[in-house]
């Protein structure tokens, strides 16, 4: 467990919670990233403005933060085919399941939604099983 970083994790988590609180209490929207992005892709979407503004902050702030601190970007080691398959599954699955780590995990659980609890337990368990297979069965 030498990689465990409880203090930055908790601080960052509190910020994610504050961001979600700002969005719901400010403009009545749930900060579910897959939903914010997914609804933007609908040709009939009328409420593009706040979605684009939210995504601009989400994409821009980490880049500014890393630049200010002189930190290096995290290394992403997955090879091209895995990136494509993984991306397709994440996009398809989050829209079919109506949410991701933020929408179901952070906001849905915060609303005490049974639907979000089932979703969160499902994607956590399946992701852990996937990592187990990739690292300890296939990767050996």
């Amino acid at each position: 467990m030498e990689n465990f970083t409880p203090i930055p994790a908790t601080l960052g988590g509190l910020l994610i919670g504050v961001a979600s609180a700002i969005l719901i209490l400010g403009i009545g929207r749930v900060a579910g990233i897959s939903g914010v992005l997914g609804q933007l892709l609908k040709s009939e979407a009328k409420d593009r403005g706040w979605r684009l503004a939210f995504l601009a902050g989400l994409i821009g702030a980490p880049a500014l933060w890393l630049m200010m601190n002189g930190d290096t970007a995290p290394a992403i080691n997955a090879p091209l085919p895995l990136l494509i398959v993984g991306g397709l599954l994440v996009g398809f699955g989050t829209r079919l399941g109506g949410g991701c780590t933020s929408g179901h995990g952070v906001c849905g659980l915060g609303r005490l939604s049974a639907r979000s609890l089932v979703a969160t337990l499902t994607f956590m368990a399946v992701a852990a099983l996937t990592v187990y297979i990739m690292r300890h069965v296939v990767g050996g």
Partner: peptide, 17 residues
Amino acid sequence: GSALFGIGWGLVGLCPG
């Protein structure tokens, strides 16, 4: 949907945010 998302998340370690 959640299961498919879980596979993709586990393969790369990235979720949408």
